[in-house]
């Protein structure tokens, strides 16, 4: 069962930063105010609103290709997992990730990347998200669920959906 943390494009993120706190705690980075604080999820504040940046778990991930020490590897379910013991801090993955989802931790000489918290039933960031921007979902069911939602709206003559695809 492939479980992934996904960021839904519902524009509801209000930048409360609760996910960042939860993530930093789970990773063992103490106080949020200290300069060495890191988290694997980040809320970027831009003109277009708040934008959570977290690992996309790409299936052909550029970071896996770029990793020099071979410490970033996909597991069987398609989660991209960093083995921090083997990370040497060459920042090749930081340079390759198009989403900017990997951060550097120069003090520990390792990267900081979301490892999907597979040891927990619910990832801490997902658990604290009140706006349901972050969800945890079985990816195999994700598209069928979307298709169902939109098919129902089609049959019921939802104008918005109908206009979107013109036919």
């Amino acid at each position: 069962m492939t479980r992934k943390i996904m960021v839904l494009p519902n524009g509801a993120c209000d930048g409360c930063d609760k996910c960042v706190d939860a993530c930093g705690q789970a990773l063992g980075y103490g106080s949020k105010d200290s300069e060495s604080y890191r988290a694997a999820i980040k809320i970027v504040n831009s003109e277009e609103g708040y934008f959570p940046v977290v690992c996309r778990n790409c299936h052909q991930a550029p970071c896996v290709t770029a990793c020099m020490s071979g410490c970033i590897q996909p597991d069987e379910d398609g989660h991209v997992i960093t083995d921090y013991d083997r990370c040497v801090g060459c920042w090749m993955c930081v340079m390759s990730c198009p989403f900017g989802a990997i951060e550097t931790d120069p003090q520990k000489h390792v990267t900081v990347k979301c490892n999907s918290c597979l040891d927990k039933s619910v990832a801490p960031c997902v658990a604290v998200c009140e706006k349901s921007v972050l969800i945890q979902i079985n990816i195999d069911e994700y598209t069928t669920r979307l298709r169902k939602n939109s098919a129902i709206r089609f049959i019921n003559g939802d104008r918005e959906v109908a206009q979107k695809c013109d036919t």
């Binding site: 550029p62 920042w91 993955c93 930081v94 390759s96 990730c97 198009p98 989403f99 900017g100 990997i102």
Partner: peptide, 10 residues
Amino acid sequence: DVDYGGALTQ
């Protein structure tokens, strides 16, 4: 300061 450099690479 190299954070998010990957976005520029892309």
